[in-house]
Design a protein around this nucleic acid. Structure first.
Length: 285
DNA sequence: TGTTATGTTGCCAT
DNA sequence: TATGGCAACATAAC
């Protein structure tokens, strides 16, 4: 669920409540692994009395910066959530750790499936993501020239390439399907076979669907919520994701959408608008 | 009631 | 190096 637009929405919704606040304490609930391999006692000492200076995002990671150069690095994976609440509020469902703030509020991290992590990073180790993540798709560094170079000679399906965080940071299954549909590209097309025009179109589509996702405060299918516990509305704007399974009509040509597996992930496609590789070009309606 | 799928990523085998 | 499969986990839907 939490892809770039969702993580960005969480970031924006947390800033008013967290920036300039100091952490007065931290409570671990039932799952020590939520902070990674670090001992909780050591973790608690390190975050104690730290003041939050800023909250940033890189790909699907959230970076909470402290006043001494250290910080927290958060990944929500499939079902993680971060939200604020009054300190006296009861633990939320699947809550694993709570941070107590100097204004009577708190920050809770919950995760049904326990894949998500909220790890401490010392000042000298604040860039563990560089080298592992590709460019931010909503910045000027993500261009068709860049993507063309990255995909050259690659034989893997384009869907797998879009989901590879080393090539583009932050795109997940939902926005990948939406972008491929908009650009009329079949997800199994070998990445290196895409024309320059298709690559340029794909770059535009990725930027468009991500911006739309942010404007609509994220896509909520089941568990995603922002830092205030509010659901997003972008699910109402999706054209194909989730519709293939029910065979709903393509919003462009009306043919029934289908699902297939590409890059190891369920993909929702219109086989007329997104012709399979080696098939004839679809008739332009 | 059992089986299958779920928005992510890292590890492992080929 | 590039690619593909699968596990980590809990729950909902079929």
């Amino acid at each position: 669920m939490p892809e770039l637009p969702e993580v960005e929405t969480v970031r924006r919704s947390l800033i008013p409540a967290l920036v300039s606040r100091s952490i007065t304490g931290v409570t671990l609930r039932d799952f020590p692994g939520v902070i990674g391999s670090m001992d909780f006692g050591a973790f608690a000492v390190l975050v104690q009395d730290r003041r939050i200076e800023d909250i940033r995002r890189r790909g699907k990671y959230l970076l909470i910066d402290f006043d001494d150069g250290s910080g927290l690095i958060v990944h929500l994976r499939m079902t993680g959530s971060l939200m604020t609440s009054p300190a006296e509020a009861a633990p939320i469902r699947f809550e694993h750790i709570a941070f107590w703030l100097d204004d009577g509020n708190s920050l809770r991290f919950a995760d049904q499936r326990k894949f998500g992590r909220i790890e401490f990073r010392p000042p000298e180790n604040r860039a563990p993501l560089e080298g592992k993540l590709g460019p931010e798709p909503l910045t000027s560094s993500f261009t068709s020239a860049y993507l063309s170079r990255a995909l050259a000679k690659r034989t893997a399906p384009i869907k797998a390439m879009i989901l590879d965080q080393r090539i583009i940071a932050g795109v997940g299954n939902i926005y990948a399907d939406e972008a491929l549909f908009r650009s009329r590209i079949h997800p199994l097309t070998p990445a290196g076979q895409l024309s320059q025009q298709k690559i340029a179109s794909l770059v535009r589509s990725i930027k468009t669907v991500l911006r739309s996702g942010i404007e609509n405060r994220g896509t909520t299918f089941s568990s995603y919520r922002d830092g205030n516990g509010e659901a997003g509305t972008n699910q109402e704007s999706l054209r194909v994701y989730g519709r293939g399974r029910r065979g709903e009509p393509c919003p462009r040509c009306g043919q029934a959408l289908v699902t297939l597996v590409a890059g190891g992930r369920t993909s929702h496609v219109c086989l007329r608008c997104q012709p399979p590789p080696n098939a004839a070009e679809a008739p332009t309606p």
